[in-house]
């Protein structure tokens, strides 16, 4: 507990479009926000899943890409000086005697907030686990979904599985320090930078690594230590490969994650809320955007925008219980304009 507790009005979990707009709506009502996201940048699904894909149903923006929308929401939130904490997952929330919340992340950050807003979309992004029987037993010991320290792989017999940039980059970057390197992919086509593909093929031609077509179907080893794998090639023939490390790179999937343990009512991995305040079964904890559910819910970004505006009204009552809340428009209110830095 060396880290100091960060005190704030509101912790928003998830820096996707709805979490970012929550900063704006909360900011207009004088609430300071810290955002926490498991990804390394803002935008959530918009930035992670479809940065280049056009979105056509944002009011006033006939066509906007996921990345552009993210950039514009960041710009809109900027006057309120939101504080971002990326690469962090909220593990625990704990009610304090004074009614506030303690929020703890897996990276050791602790926040004290009067209100929690869950804007976590489909949940947290986690690496996709290939459907190989028993793979769980090896995870963290000889099967890894990320390379945190290259040095850990020095002298290892490594098999990398996948056909994207992560798979290609790590094949090339780890090759000089490992004992043996093999890359397996289901087809001879990649969604990676052509230069990386060429480099990998060059190394394969020089016998510095093996490139295999097929899929890993079985793992062999004991006590979490991999000793080899069975590979099925595209002609359905099986063969064995001696490896002590497997790195599967199949992108990210979304899981509800630790939110399931916070004592909130859940319905099919969604969080039921009321439709006036978008508050959960626990007062002081709100859920907005794709992660909530209520009668008639539509998983649209614009629905999330509406939800945060109403949420902020109730959040204000927790954060500033003695203050009077007057409803104002940004077009006419000089005090709102001052907050936005335009007056």
């Amino acid at each position: 507990m060396a880290e100091e507790t960060i005190t704030t009005d509101v912790v928003v979990i998830g820096a996707g479009p709805v979490g970012l707009f929550a900063v704006f709506e909360l900011g207009l009502l004088d609430m300071k926000v810290h955002l926490i996201d498991i990804l390394d940048r803002p935008g959530g699904q918009c930035a992670e899943l479809y940065p280049e894909k056009p979105i056509y149903d944002i009011p006033g923006l006939p066509l906007v890409t996921g990345q552009d929308l993210t950039d514009r929401l960041m710009e809109q939130a900027a006057p309120f000086n939101p504080q971002f904490h990326f690469n962090e997952q909220v593990e625990e929330v704990e009610k304090q005697p004074d009614g506030s919340w303690l929020v703890k992340t897996d990276g050791g950050l602790t926040f004290n907030a009067k209100v929690i807003v869950i804007a976590a979309g489909g949940g947290s992004f986690q690496p996709k686990r290939p459907p190989i029987p028993g793979i769980e037993d090896y995870e963290g010991k000889s099967v890894f979904y990320a390379v945190k320290k290259m040095e850990n792989f020095r002298g290892k017999k490594v098999l990398i599985s996948g056909g994207g940039d992560s798979a290609l980059d790590w094949t090339i970057n780890l090759q000089p320090i490992v004992k043996s390197m093999a890359l397996i992919h289901r087809r001879d086509g990649f969604r990676a930078a052509p230069a990386s593909v060429n480099e990998m093929k060059k190394l394969a031609a020089e016998d510095k690594l093996k490139f295999l077509l097929g899929q890993v179907t079985k793992l062999h080893g004991a006590n979490g230590q991999l000793e080899g794998v069975t590979i099925q090639d595209n002609d359905k023939k099986e063969f064995e490969l001696e490896v002590d490390t497997l790195l599967p790179f199949f992108g990210l999937t979304m899981k509800l994650g630790p939110i399931a343990n916070w004592g909130l009512n859940l319905h099919e991995n969604l969080i039921p809320v009321d439709v006036e305040k978008f508050e959960t079964s626990t007062p002081g904890i709100f859920a907005v955007g794709d992660i909530n559910t209520y009668p008639g819910k539509l998983k649209l970004i614009l629905s999330g925008f509406h939800e945060v505006a109403l949420m902020a009204q109730q959040a204000f009552r927790y954060v500033h219980p003695d203050a009077k809340l007057t409803f104002q428009y940004t077009t006419s209110s000089t005090s709102l304009q001052k907050k936005l830095g335009v007056n």
Binding site: K128, P130, G164, R186, R187
Partner: peptide
């Protein structure tokens, strides 16, 4: 191509 890319990431057969 974009469907193939997604199938790559999802352990397709």
């Amino acid at each position: 191509e974009d469907e193939l890319d997604m199938l790559d990431q999802n352990y397709a057969n």
